[in-house]
């Protein structure tokens, strides 16, 4: 779901960069000496996850898992996404330079929304309800990302509306797969190491 350089109009690129800088600045405020290694290691896991290819029918997709990223890192997800995209651009030549801001916002904002909306519900529920909520959280993050990629394209020109629709349609199977993956991963973490999920809004307010 990367957007490459040269597609978007200047206004969209600049707006994306401004929002990204604000988000990164706010996200960095949550980073302290205590939790810096933790945030870096968890970001590294999500980078490694993005190298994992999962087959769907005849093709394969790489994992994104930005819903889970938000649930675990909270606001720190924004710098984490930015660093991952920067490394991809510099070391793999994948993605783009001028569109870094827009791509960061498109991937990180859904993570934050999932964290704020689904986080408190996931903290309260158990069992089957929790698994379904986690599935929805994983799918919703991908859906929102696809919508935002589509909106960034459509805002850059009428001619991209068809491409935007295509992006959304091709992402529907990814939503399903990411939903199952997020539910499984979330269930496991909550059972094995609930301390990982302490950044969930209600819990952090209680402690």
């Amino acid at each position: 779901m990367h957007i490459v350089d040269g597609v978007l109009s200047t206004e969209v690129v600049v707006a994306g960069a401004v929002i990204a800088v604000a988000g990164i600045a706010f996200g960095l405020r949550q980073v302290s000496i205590e939790n810096m290694p933790r945030i870096a290691l968890l970001s590294a896991v999500f980078f490694v996850a993005s190298l994992i290819h999962v087959p769907i029918g005849p093709t394969s997709i790489h994992l994104i898992m930005n819903g889970l990223l938000g649930l675990i890192l909270g606001w720190a997800a924004v710098p984490a996404v930015f660093i991952a995209l920067l490394l991809q651009a510099v070391f793999f030549g994948f993605g783009g330079i001028t569109v870094l801001g827009v791509n960061t916002v498109n991937m990180a904002l859904p993570a934050i929304v999932v964290w704020l909306v689904f986080g408190p519900i996931l903290a309260r529920t158990e069992g089957r309800t929790m698994m379904i909520t986690a599935f929805l959280a994983g799918s919703f993050a991908i859906m929102l990302s696809a919508v935002m990629v589509g909106v960034s394209l459509a805002l850059s020109g009428q001619e991209f509306i068809a491409t935007a629709r295509l992006v959304f349609v091709t992402n529907i199977p990814i939503m399903v797969v990411e939903g199952f993956l997020t539910a499984a991963a979330f269930g496991l973490i909550k059972k094995v190491r609930p301390a990982l999920l302490l950044s969930i809004p209600t819990t952090s307010m209680a402690t």
């Binding site: 968890l42 590294a44 896991v45 994992i52 898992m65 991963a185 496991l188 973490i189 190491r193 301390a195």
Partner: peptide, 18 residues
């Protein structure tokens, strides 16, 4: 497969946290 890969990512996160 998807469930197993989810467990794999979850396990990676747990180990990274530790």
């Amino acid at each position: 497969s998807w469930k197993m890969m989810g467990y794999l990512v979850g396990m990676l996160l747990v180990r990274a946290h530790d």
